[in-house]
Structure formats: structure tokens, C-alpha cells
């Protein structure tokens, strides 16, 4: 069970003088129960890529298979696909449209054919998971603060209980506590539901912490793919791609430049601490 992208490419405004390659042919697999992080500079093709994953963008070449079925085959039910492969957009404003937050979060599950009651139950659970308490239910989504809107948009997709959850910059605009809680919830959901997660993020710290696998995009090409440890070892490749090292890792590099005998291979504060203490002992 998985989502498989085979030699997919994407050309914007194909056949016009404005033609512009968004993505060069690449292959990628999203497994159930796995967190795949997609990183890359702005404009590197991340959003184009993930919008193909749930059938919003049709690849110019190549095929996409969900559980072995070609999602662009003639009779394929792409509407149903969108409730199984849920996408949270980069800007939550584009996702919120109902009068109240509760109605908005209910929209997906209702569309899936659930009863009002079931939909509300799901919506409430999803809202709690992202830290939206009961008093947000009757508020207009347009009157929320930036971070509150993002929480509402994420809840709306969670309420559909997708098999694969794709999030474009899920923690942008969240306060540190909200960010921490969301990441923890996502990992819990993966465990509970064997949900696959694709996460586009500019936060190398979040990526280092969450990802099983990282795909690095640069100028519309898949530059490299690997575990966080493998990827964050490639400092020059990352810088070339407009990215950076997680803070903990960066400090170790600075220390090494200053002549301290430290290993630089750390993904978290805890690991960096161990490396530094080792140098001092």
C-alpha cells in the first residue's frame, strides 16, 4: 500500500510561449507509516510535486499509482483519492471557506458521506488534536489569527482521516508550543493509523526530528534522497540547494572550524551535547 510516482515531470503552461519546467522527471515512493520530508529552496518545485500526489496536478509525463492503481486512469475516482490522500495547503486561507470553524472542519467528512453526527464527532476530535478548544467552534474562520487559521486548516484535513497526509509547511505560523504539539500529534497519528506523512518544510529542525526519509529538490530536480543523517552530512549539497543545517548541527560545524575535535553528525540538541561533552572529556 503506497503512493508511487514514476518518472513524473511537470511543465507549466505547456504549449505556450511561457512554458516552464516545474519538475524534471523523478520517481519517488511514499510508504504507509513513513514520514517523508520534502525540502528545497522556494521555487524548487515542492508544492508542484505534492499537488501531483493527490491528483490536483496532472503530471506532464509519467504516472502516479495509489495502491497499485493509476490515479489518472480514465475511470479513476480522484475525488475519493483526495479524501484518502489529504493535502494541507501552504496558505490556510485558501482552504477555509465556511461560516464557522466547526462547519469548515466538518466539510471533508460530510463530503465523504458521513452523517452530520459522525462528521461533527470527527471534526471535534480533529480540532482538539490541533489545540482548538470548544470556543472556536462557532467563530468565523476568517476572523482567526494566522496560527489559528493554520490549525483549523489542518483539522479540516485530519477530520477526513486520510491514509496519507500531505502537509505544505505545516508549522509555519504556529507558536513554539503549537508546533511541538502538532509534530507530536502527527507522530502519534502515524502510529495509531499507520498513516503515511509527507511534509514540506523549511525548518531543518522539524525535518531532522520527524523524517524517516528526506527528498531534496533543487531547481525542479530530485537532488538527493536519504535518511536525515545521510542528508545532513551533505552540507555543501544542502547549501547549493538553498538549504541549511539544523541549528544543533551547525554549531558543531562552527566548533570544528575553531579547531575543537568534535564530530558534526548530530540531529538534535541532545546529540550535539553528547558530541561536545565527548570533546571536553
Amino acid at each position: 500500500m503506497s503512493l508511487l510516482l514514476q518518472n513524473v515531470s511537470y511543465v507549466y503552461e505547456q504549449g505556450t510561449p511561457m512554458e516552464n519546467t516545474g519538475l524534471h522527471p523523478l520517481s519517488l515512493e511514499v510508504k504507509d507509516d513513513e514520514v517523508l520530508a520534502v525540502i528545497g529552496a522556494t521555487g524548487s518545485g515542492k508544492s508542484t510535486l505534492i499537488q501531483m500526489m493527490n491528483g490536483l496536478n496532472k503530471p506532464s509525463t509519467g504516472n502516479i499509482y495509489y495502491n497499485g492503481e493509476d490515479i489518472f486512469a480514465e475511470k479513476y475516482d480522484r475525488r475519493r483519492l483526495r479524501s484518502q490522500v489529504g493535502l494541507v495547503f501552504q496558505y490556510p486561507e485558501y482552504q477555509l471557506f465556511e461560516e464557522t470553524v466547526l462547519k469548515d472542519v466538518c466539510f471533508g467528512p460530510k463530503n465523504q458521506g458521513l452523517s452530520e453526527e459522525e462528521a461533527i464527532g470527527r471534526a471535534r476530535r480533529a480540532m482538539r488534536r490541533v489545540g482548538l478548544t470548544e470556543d472556536y467552534e462557532e467563530r468565523s474562520p476568517f476572523d482567526l489569527s494566522g496560527g489559528e487559521k493554520r490549525r483549523a486548516a489542518i483539522a479540516g484535513v485530519l477530520a477526513m482521516e486520510p491514509k496519507i497526509l500531505i502537509l505544505d509547511e505545516p508549522t509555519a505560523g504556529l507558536d513554539p508550543e503549537g508546533r511541538e504539539e502538532l509534530l507530536t500529534e502527527l507522530l502519534a497519528l502515524r502510529r495509531e493509523r499507520q498513516m503515511g506523512i509527507v511534509m514540506v518544510s523549511h525548518s531543518m529542525e522539524d525535518v531532522a526530528r520527524m523524517a524517516d526519509r528526506i527528498a531534496v529538490l533543487s531547481h525542479g530536480k530530485l537532488l538527493m534522497q536519504g535518511t536525515p543523517r545521510e542528508i545532513f552530512r551533505e552540507e555543501s549539497g544542502l547549501l547549493e540547494a538553498g538549504l541549511a543545517l539544523p541549528a544543533a548541527c551547525h554549531i558543531l560545524h562552527l566548533l570544528k572550524e575553531k579547531g575543537l575535535p568534535v564530530g558534526t553528525d548530530a540531529l538534535s540538541v541532545e546529540e550535539a551535547k553528547e558530541k561536545i561533552l565527548a570533546a571536553f572529556s
Binding site: 507558536d175 513554539p176 503549537g178 539544523p246 544543533a248 540538541v269
Partner: peptide, 18 residues
């Protein structure tokens, strides 16, 4: 207050505690 210290500060604190 729902905030954090920067990772750098967290690392410095952890090292100080050690």
C-alpha cells in the same frame, strides 16, 4: 507562555547542567 528558548540556548543550558 507557549514559547521556547532557541536551540542554541537549549544546548548551552544542557552543557551548563553537565
Amino acid at each position: 507562555l507557549g514559547l521556547q528558548v532557541p536551540q542554541t540556548t537549549a544546548l548551552a543550558d544542557a552543557l551548563r547542567e553537565s
